[in-house]
């Protein structure tokens, strides 16, 4: 199936991709992966434009990885949760539904790219730029999650709780993956690197951001130096 035709079906009628007997994973998965890489890469390119230069390339390479990481790491746990809730869910069906959802989210994120680029091109404040990025990701991600939910079979019990648990597992992996592959937006004075050294985790960063929003600017490294390895470098705070 041509990539353009697949794009149309992913956006217009994702459920039609799962019509018929069997799950066409072999037929659709390569194309869907290509869509995620292309659309996610395009969105990454836009994010990289905030800092410019080589960061265009870095962000374009890393963003599809962040989008795919929850699928690669959390899918077995998500399936086990649905099975425990009594939902008859095959791994191939879940994998395809998740791929379709992520592809749809990537395409929508890429569609928001031009507007985001326009905002970034007028030298937006760093924090506003982060908020715009988060807003775009939340919009696209919510659409992708709803799509996945609609593509899963019916039946089972405690569906809402199971959806929430699955979302929690995948969301935690997504957050840590994003933290691991940062920076995407780079502060104007920060050094551009492909990835930063592994230091602490996303939750420490969120905690530090929360403290600083309340006027405590010590940062996570100030409190955590005795806990973590001495070679851990201070965070640049960029994302």
């Amino acid at each position: 199936m041509a990539l353009l035709q697949l794009t149309v079906r992913v956006l217009r009628s994702p459920a039609s991709l799962l019509d018929g007997d069997g799950v066409p994973l072999a037929k659709l998965a390569p194309g869907l992966l290509a869509l995620v890489v292309l659309a996610g890469g395009l969105f990454g390119l836009v994010i990289g434009s905030y800092r410019g230069g080589i960061q265009h390339v870095f962000a374009a390479i890393k963003l599809p990885g962040v989008l795919l990481l929850p699928l690669l790491v959390a899918l077995p746990a998500v399936r086990a949760l649905y099975l425990a809730a009594g939902m008859p869910l095959g791994y191939d069906r879940l994998a395809l539904a998740a791929l379709i959802g992520v592809a749809r989210a990537s395409l929508l994120a890429a569609a928001m790219g031009p507007a985001l680029w326009l905002m970034y091109s007028v030298h937006l404040d760093y924090h506003v730029a982060v908020m715009c990025l988060c807003g775009a990701l939340v919009l696209a991600g919510a659409t992708g999650l709803i799509t996945i939910g609609q593509l899963l079979p019916g039946g089972g019990r405690l569906r809402a709780v199971t959806h929430l648990a699955a979302l929690g597992v995948a969301g935690v992996v997504f957050a840590q993956g994003g933290w691991l592959l940062r920076p995407f937006l780079v502060r104007p004075r920060a050094e551009v690197t492909f990835v930063r050294p592994i230091e602490a985790d996303v939750f420490s960063s969120v905690g530090a951001a929360w403290r600083s929003s309340r006027g405590d600017y010590r940062g996570w490294e100030a409190q955590s130096v005795p806990m973590w390895a001495p070679e851990a470098e201070p965070a640049e705070g960029s994302r």
Binding site: L25, A26, P30, G31, L33, G90, Y91, D92, A95, A98
Partner: peptide
């Protein structure tokens, strides 16, 4: 007998292709 695109995708994202 799967297509080369499937094999390539499986190399990068094998957890998605295990059912095949």
């Amino acid at each position: 007998g799967h297509a080369p695109a499937v094999a390539l995708g499986a190399f990068a994202c094998w957890p998605l292709f295990v059912p095949l």
